[in-house]
Amino acid sequence: MKIFKFLLLLAALGVGGGATVMYSGIVNVAADEPHSDLVFWLLEQTRENSIKKAAQSIEVPDLSDPELLLTGGADYEYMCSSCHLKPDQIESDMSLGLYPVPPNLAVSGESHKGNEQGDEIESARKHFWVIKHGIKASGMPAWGKTHDDHRIWAMVAFIKRLPTLTPEQYQVLTAIE
């Protein structure tokens, strides 16, 4: 019985503490003020595990058709490059102003600190899932509401090659005509 009371007290304290933090306004939601290391770690782990689980059984189609690079390239330039940058561009208003920071998709995956990539298949699955569903409370929109799976896979195919592209190749692939 004692332990039960103790747990009840703990729960009450937890709820009370949470409510105090919530209503006091002490949490700073400004995007130009980074999370503390602990909060950052918690959010990062939550995100990575969530994406990994949700994407694990997505079937990856053949992404080698050159046509995908053209569809995906044009879409990337007009919908994504403002946040995720392009070859030889290192910053934009969005890449500097958003928090969490949009990863620079024009450089290889290993350099997105905190974003586990996994092998090629896993990386394609995760990219597809993230593009389709977006990420809550970050700047990353859910493009699946307005784009069918085929167009999303085309962007996945394009993103896969993006870190290898020169600015000239990028320009040709992404131009409208």
Partner: peptide, 11 residues
């Protein structure tokens, strides 16, 4: 290379 083929197609 799909990139080269895609560029040729575009051009």
């Amino acid at each position: 290379d799909p990139v080269a083929i895609a560029m040729m197609k575009k051009c």
